[in-house]
Every structure is written in C-alpha cells, then in structure tokens.
Nucleic acid binder design. Structure first.
Lengths: 237, 237, 237, 237
DNA sequence: CATGAATGAGAGTTCATTCAT
DNA sequence: TATGAATGAACTCTCATTCAT
C-alpha cells in the first residue's frame, strides 16, 4: 500500500474512532467529487452528507486539495491491491489480458464516470498541485498491463511492431469511452461488454497476418512432405 | 454549419470589428476553458489575456455558460465541416476509416487535451445546461464514422458480431488516451501514430477469419500426416 | 409652465427634430420608470424601446437622474396646467372639490401606479438628488386644493377645526390607495369611484354636527314663531 | 404568528447567539430597506452598519430577497399581533375604528415612511417574487378593519352605500399621506393627529342622515311658514 | 447627430478556511 | 474532539457613463 503523507491539519490519526471518521469523510468526499468534479464539489456538501460541521472536515484534512488527493490515491490503492493480489494466479497472455480488462471495466463501472473523469482530468492538471504522488500511482497501476504486454511480445503472442504505450492506450482508451455510453443506458452487462472488448482488442494486438504465417508454415510443411516423398520414392527405385 | 442563436448581451454583432472581437474572445475562451476546465476557468482571466475589461466579454456574450457553449459548438463545427467536405472523396472502408482516425487525432492534438476533456466532461453533464444543441452536434460528428462502419459490416469488411457503439468506443477511446501520453512528450509524429493506431484498430475490427482457422487446422493435419508418414516409412526400413 | 434648466449634455435643443427626440425619450422614460421604479429602470431598456443606442439618450440628457427629474417635472406640469386652466371656471366649494378629486384620480389611473409610486418614493428621497425643483412643483400642484379648502373654511362650507394639511392628506391619501386596489381589477369606473370618494370626503369635511346646527336653527325659528304667535294672540286679548 | 420557512444559507439558527445575530441583521435590514428601497439597498451597507462582513449576512439569510421578505413579514407579524391582542377588548364601532386608526398611525410613525413605501411598492410587485406569503399577511392585517366596518354597516353605524374596499382605502390612504407630511416637521403629536383623523373619517363614514335632511326641510318649511305668517299678520294690521 | 465600443465601479453571492470555545 | 461563527477573497454579472468616429 502507498504510504500517504496524510497531511492532518493538527492531529495524529491514532484512535480507532478517528480512523473511522477519516474513512467516512473519504467515502463521502469520493461521492461528492465524483458527482460534481473537483471545482464544483463543496466542503459544505460533504459536511452535510456526513452530518457534521464543515470545520470537522478540516480537522482531519488540511484542505480540499489534500482531500481530493487522498480520494484519488485511495482509489488507485484499491484497484492496485486487487490486481496485484490476483494477477499472479492467472496464466497465459490472453487470460491475463482478459482479466485486466474485466477488472478495469468493473472498477470504472462501479465507481462511475464521475470519479473516472476526476482521475483523468484532475490527475493530469497543468499545475502540479496534485503532485507526483498520483503520477507514481498511475505508473504502478498500469505497470502490470505493461509487463503482461512486454512478456506477450517476447513470447510472440502480441505484435511487437508498435510502441507499448500505443497498445496500452488502445486498451484503456476504449474502456473509458464505453463508460460514457454506459451511463445513458439503464443497465450494462459488464461481463459481456468486457468480453467483447477483450476479443476485439486481442485480435488487434495479434501479430499481423496470421493467415500469411499459417500459409508460410504450410508451405514449409508441404516442401518437407514433398522432399520426404521424393526420398521415399527414389529409394524404391 | 450550425446556426447559433448567438445571445449577445447587449450588442448586435454586425460590424467587421465586432466580428473580430467575437473571434478573439472565442479563441481566448477556448484556451482558458481548455487549460482550466469549465468551473475553474474565470472570465477575468480571459479578459486579462485579451487585454480588455471583463465587461467587454459580457458585452459580446450573455455569460460564461453561453461562451462555453459557443466554444464547444465552434469546435464541432470546424471538425464536422472538415469531415463532411473530404470524406465523400475517399473510397474504400479501410481508407475511410484511416482518414477519420487521422482527422480526429489531428484535431485532438492541435486543440489539446484540455478542450477534449471539456467537451467530454461538460458536454455530457447530467444537468444539460449545455443543452441539446451540443448533443445534436455530437451525433452529427460521429455519424460519418458510424455510417462507414455500418457499410463496412454490410460489405463484410468489418466484423458484425459486435454492437456498433462498442466499435465506435474502441476507435474514439484510444485516441483520447494517446493524447494524454502525447502531452508529456515534446514531439509526436501524428502521421505515424495515427497510422499505427489505424492499423491496430483495423486488425481488431476485421471479421474473425474462418479461412485462417481452416488453414491452421489444415496445417495441423499436414503435420500429423507428416509425422505418420515418418513413422510409417521409418518402420518399413 | 415650469422652466427647466434642461441640463443637456453638450447641445442646445434648438432644431425641431431635436425637440421631437427629446419628447420621444421622455415618453419612453416615463414608461420605463413607471414600470420598474427608479433603481430598476435601465437606460438600455429605454434605448431599446426607442430603437436608438444608449449613447443617444445621453446626448440629450445629462444622466439617469436628470432624465427622471424631467419625467416627474413634466408630469406635474401637465396636471398643473390642466387644473389651472379649468378650475377658475368651476364655482362653489363642493363643485371645485369634486373637480379636483376627479382630475387627480383620472391622472393617477391613466399614468398608472408605477408613475405614482415613482413620484411618491423618489420625489421624496432622503438625499435631495431630485432637488428642490420637485418640491416646488408639489407645492404648486397642491396649492389650488389648499386654496379651495381655505376659502371653504372661510365660507363655512368646510370644517375649520382641523389643520388644512390634514384635510389635504385625507383627500390625496385615499386616492393613491384606491389606485392600488384598482390595478388588481380589470376595469374601474373612474367616474363612479371618484364620485363616491368625493361624497365620502365631502361629508367628512363638513362642519361637524349639521344636525345640531339645524336643530338649533329650528329652535330659534320656533322661538320666533312662538313669540310672534304670543304677540298676535295677546293683541287679540 | 406566521411561521417562516427561514431559509438560512448554511446555518441552523438554534443557539441564543445566532438568534441575536438574526435579530440584529433584521433590524439593520429594516433600516436600510426603509431608507433606500429594495433596489437601492445594498447588502454591504447592512454589513457595514452591523460591523460585520457581507458574508455574515449571507450566513444567516439566503439572499437579499429573502431578507426583505423577512423584514416585511416581521413588520406585519408585529402589528397583527398587536391588533389581534387588543381589539377584542374594545367595544363599539366608533371605539374600534379609533383604536385601529391610532394603532396603524403609530406603527407608520415609528417605522417611518420608508418601510411603508417598501411594503406598498415591493409587497405589490407584479412579479410576485415576494410571493403569496405577504399577500396573505396583508389580508390578515386588514381583516380586522374590514370586519369592524362590515359590522358597523350592519348595525347602521357606518354608511352602506359604498363598497367596503373604498371605505378601507379612505382610511388607510390618508394615514400614509399624513406620514409624508410628518417627516418634514420636527415633532408630531400622534395622539392628536390620529384623533383628528379619526373624527374626520368617522364623520365621512356616517350614514348620510335622512333625519338631518328632514330637519333641514322642516326648518325651511318653518321659515316659509313664518314668512307667510309675517305677511298675513302685517297685511291684517 | 448618432452610435459602436469599451469600461470602472460596483452588486449579490459563494466558499474554503480559521479560530475560540 | 467538534463546531458555531465569521470572513477574505474571488466570482459572475450589470449598468450608467464616456468618447472617438
């Protein structure tokens, strides 16, 4: 787990009750930031939903920005933990990829487009207010996918004629897009959607021209067969 | 071109000078909205960049929202015009797709990720303050791609086993993502990147080839036959 | 007619066209001030109704305040002219009073409650921005009524046991009040209303206890009659 | 007492200190609205007079409009409470009317003409932003007077040949007018003024006395009789 | 003479943040 | 520890007024 600098305004979060309060605040903050985006989210709304005063929020967090950083970090922590716990038990490039795609999509769906937008927009703000911490988490989050792809390329399961970063984009990109479509509809079959998406992407990621490769192999096999036949028939002579 | 209701606060934008002012304001507004997002963008910053007073901005636009709507609409107008002018002269599913991808990516690169985020986030706000006008433009913008894909499916050039909306997402999605990567680097070869992306997507969009599967099976059969022949001929020796 | 200082911003209103423009502006200004009150009235609305630019208004008037002063003054001028022209031809305290009441009510009804409120509220603003000119007009406007009442008191037609200012208030006061009631109804019969109001007020203004006066007179008459009868009958003895 | 929906911007006005603040703000707001009217009154002036920041005002009230509504409602509440508490203990049409007139005039004098104008102008704005609540209060406020008059008409104490609304106007109307006169003078004897006004109005409200007319006729007859008797007796001489 | 264009000076309102209790 | 209370700073938006053309 990432160790946050925590930035408490004036207290050490030691007691059990304090820990719970922090969790409550973070949960509500995640909600509000998701629904409104960073700028439009207000501390008073969070306080009201929590049933506490605004000042209480500031007792536990140094400010709105810090609160938002924590929300984003926690989100990454959760999904990273999930992936790092399960991925090692999945075998095969294809299966690993399918797993990563499904996990990512699940998260996005559950946490909603708001949080997704928050992480995308605010996480990459020009002014580095959200700092390098989040950048680091982003890298840690995408690392497993990058590894899987690198291994896949080495094993010949994935095309090696393109930069990994482009492959990564073509995996994460569609998912966010699918999400926007999803919110207009009532229900979305995540399992089905992620499966289809995975199939589509997998096919795109394949080394190009499998037909040609198969044909070349067939040619080689035929040539070998012909040679063998030649030898057999000539030995009969 | 979309005909805007214009909504000027007090003035009829008739003269040449007026038109220029409006263009200047829109250009700066596009910048600021791009960099800061809707909520964090301020009218005073726009005014300062223009070297005029805030009041001047409100002389030409009814308010911040209207200004933003105009920025988004103008963006759509530009790219839609570009596509509708050129696409008809491109032939072939693959070529059309490559053209659309390159055009889209170009636009995104030129206008930057901020505007992209603005259009995505604010254009889809649940409280449709930005109204149906933008929704309409969105549909008009994606319509050509959808048509190309529908035709491609009908012609057997594109796989028909997935909803068009998913295909659309897997095209538009990566591009936005690629963009985020792009801004960290100094230079990006758009031509190369869009070409690679197009290749990747094109391959993913191909109908899963039954011929290739048959060939692979044939190959396996041949190999088995060879092995058998091997064994047979060697046991005869 | 009151001679206004006119306060033109930078021009002398000499030509015929100019005079017309001034009249047009004043007419529209009266409308707008009536509908919105001084503070809420805007110069741009006046300009728009006139179909000219805001600047034009300021070509003819030094500012909003001056415009408003002129509107109020003109209103007084009109009604004063009306009264001073007709009142001399009316004879009898009662008839004069009825005439004044009807004229006042007519004016109020025609010009609407807005203008009435404007004249009442703004004409008496704490900060004497509207100056002494209006105060003078107010005095000139009420002067005829005051004169009629003073004469009436002298002639015994009107009670003399109360200050004239109180009598004046009890005449002008109800009319403004009636006006407020009037605007909620569709139509008001001004003739009937002013008649009734005049009757009511006239009765209140009568010297008190006409019954007692009549009785006293009767008593005197009876005493005289008795005395005469006495003389007659005693002369028969 | 009217129960207000209160509409505090952010705080629940529970504690003693809060209640006091609210009262202070309302008192100052009443002052400022009175002096300047709704449009010209500014929140910053209120804040300055209170010695607090503008934000504090908005902490307790949702906005300028709400503040004004509260000011007007509170005014009505006060006077309505006063009337409803005392009127039942007054007997006789004349005494009731005198009491109502004195109470109304007292209120107007204490609160000044500004508040009066505010209530008249803003309370009857066509765009009923101030809503039905005030209209209701207005009705509740005038109800006792209307009842007294209706009873008076039934009992023959008050003339029944005119609409009640006209009678009401002729009572409330003069009072507001008297007020305007009052502010120019240093001191006003409210007791005396209200007594005189009440006398005047009472006389106006009396049923036109047919007895008096009959008496007058009788007097004329007697005079004629006397004249005849005069001529007769002198001619006999 | 009329006006297009611009603006300074505010207005109401919001909100993250502080601090004594 | 929690909060009632207060606020500075900022924001969007309005409008009477000026002035070169």
């Amino acid at each position: 787990m990432t160790q946050h600098k925590a930035l408490p305004a004036r207290r050490a979060p030691s007691s059990v009750k304090s820990e719970q309060r922090i969790k409550d605040i973070l949960a509500v903050a995640r909600e509000v930031f998701s629904e409104r985006g960073y700028s439009s989210a207000t501390t008073i709304e969070m306080a009201r939903r929590l049933g506490v005063s605004e000042a209480t929020v500031f007792t536990y967090f140094a400010g709105k920005r810090d609160l938002c950083v924590r929300v984003i970090c926690d989100w990454y922590d959760e999904i990273i933990a999930e992936i790092e716990a399960t991925l090692p038990h999945v075998t095969g490039t294809r299966a690993k990829l399918f797993f990563l795609i499904r996990t990512h999509l699940y998260r996005l769906m559950i946490d909603g487009p708001g949080l997704c937008a928050l992480i995308l927009s605010e996480g990459r703000a020009k002014d580095d207010t959200f700092g390098s911490e989040i950048l680091q988490l982003q890298r840690r989050y995408t690392a497993p996918l990058m590894q899987v792809m690198a291994d896949g390329v080495a094993a010949g399961d994935i095309r090696g004629d393109m930069p990994l970063s482009l492959l990564r984009s073509s995996i994460y990109g569609p998912m966010e897009h699918v999400l926007w479509d999803a919110i207009s509809k009532k229900t979305v079959d995540i399992e089905e959607t992620s499966n289809r998406l995975a199939q589509l992407l997998w096919q795109g990621l394949q080394p190009p021209n499998p037909n040609a490769a198969a044909l070349e192999q067939l040619q080689r096999d035929m040539a070998a067969a012909l040679r063998l036949y030649d030898q057999t028939s000539s030995s009969k002579k």
